[in-house]
Structure formats: C-alpha cells, structure tokens
C-alpha cells in the first residue's frame, strides 16, 4: 500500500516537473515583479508592518528615522567643535555614534536606489513636477523652501520625539496615545501647509 502511494507520488512529481517545463521560471517572475515601478500600497503597507515587527524582535527597536539625523548632526559637531559636544544635554540622551539609528538612513537611500534602478525610474532632478507647476522651475526657490521645510521638520520631529515612521507607524501599532496624537498633528500641520501653498481643492 505504501509502495503504491509512493509510486503515485513519484509519477505525480514527474508529471508536474514535465508540466512546468514550458512555463516561465520563478526567477523571471521575481525579476519582473521587482522591476515594476509601483506596487500596491496595501502590499507595501503589509510588508512595512511585518518589517516593524522584525525590527522589534531582532533589534528591540521601533523603526524610526529622525534620530539618525541627530546622530549625524552630533558627529558633524564633534568634528568641528571637538569632544565637548558630547556634554550637551541632548547628545547625552542621543550620543553621537555610527549605530543602528544612523545606519537606517544610508540603508533607505540604498534601498530606494535599488528599487528605482530595477524599475528604471531613477533620475536626477532638482524641482519636482508638482512644485514646478505651481511655483515655476526656479531651482533656488525650491531649494530655499526645502531648506526651510527641513528645518521645521527637524525641530518638529525632535520636539515631538519621532517622525512619520517612529510615531505614525511604529508608535501607533503599539497603541501609544502620544504617537497617535503626534501622527494626527503631522497631518493637520501638513494639510494646512499644503492648502496655504496650493490652495484648497474644490
């Protein structure tokens, strides 16, 4: 009886192998999938949710990005002003070092570069199309606005103790009241600024 089942199993295996031959190999499918310019936002969201879980298990950290900028800033100050920078109260809380929180930033740059290269959407530009439609293609104006926005973003992220990923995703999924409140305020402020710049959509 067992032999009989084994025989059938073997035949079935042979048959599937034979049937799969003319098909596209799984490698081609993966290449095609990875080369798509866009994935469904739901698929991306599900993967990010799992990624945050992995980070909490393997690194005991929520995924966040703004602390990395504090680390880079602290290291840069150390180069120009020496070791006494470490005595600043804020850098005692977030010591300048090349660590997990800093490395996530070059990681994101590499990941986005890989993704855009695979889909052929990588391209250098200074003024995003939507900005150019509203404010013209002046690079100086765009950079000025981006620097001002970046300053507010840096102050706000550290003031609130996290950013869109730290509070908005990692904090919210841990049911943190402060994080959910922050995330709501990110969007209230963001929507207000977008309406100031681009007008209220009708």
């Amino acid at each position: 009886m067992v032999m009989f089942l084994l025989c059938i199993h073997k035949e079935y295996q042979n048959e599937t192998v034979f049937r799969e031959k003319p098909r596209v190999s799984s490698e081609d499918i993966m290449n095609g999938f990875l080369a798509l310019p866009l994935w469904s936002p739901y698929l991306v969201g599900v993967c990010i949710g799992l990624l945050v879980c992995f980070a909490l298990v393997l690194s005991d950290r929520p995924i966040g990005c703004s602390t990395g900028f504090v680390k880079i800033r602290g290291l840069a100050e150390q180069i120009f002003c020496g070791k006494q920078v470490q005595e600043k109260e804020y850098y005692q809380k977030f010591p300048p070092a090349v660590d997990w929180q800093l490395m996530i930033l070059p990681g994101i740059i590499i990941g986005a570069f890989l993704s855009s290269s695979l889909s052929g959407t990588f391209g250098l530009f200074l003024v995003p199309p939507l900005w150019a439609d509203q404010f013209g293609s002046s690079a100086a104006l765009r950079i000025l606005a981006a620097v001002a926005g970046g300053i507010l973003l840096g102050i706000g992220a550290r003031w609130a103790g996290g950013c869109t990923s730290g509070h908005g995703i990692s904090g919210s999924l841990q049911l943190s009241v402060g994080s959910i409140l922050s995330a709501a305020c990110f969007f209230v402020g963001g929507i207000a600024m977008a309406m100031i710049l681009f007008g209220v959509p009708l």
């Binding site: 970046g150 507010l152 706000g156 609130a160 509070h167 922050s182 402020g189």
Partner: peptide, 19 residues
C-alpha cells in the same frame, strides 16, 4: 506631541518629504 507634531506638519508640507 501636539506642538512638536504641528511644527513637524508645517515642515512636512513645505518640504514635501518626511525624515
């Protein structure tokens, strides 16, 4: 969380990216 969040939001809208 609220004050910092609102400052962040204004920067978010002006820059068009988050950290």
């Amino acid at each position: 969380n609220v004050v910092g969040g609102l400052i962040f939001g204004l920067g978010f809208g002006l820059l068009g990216y988050c950290p």
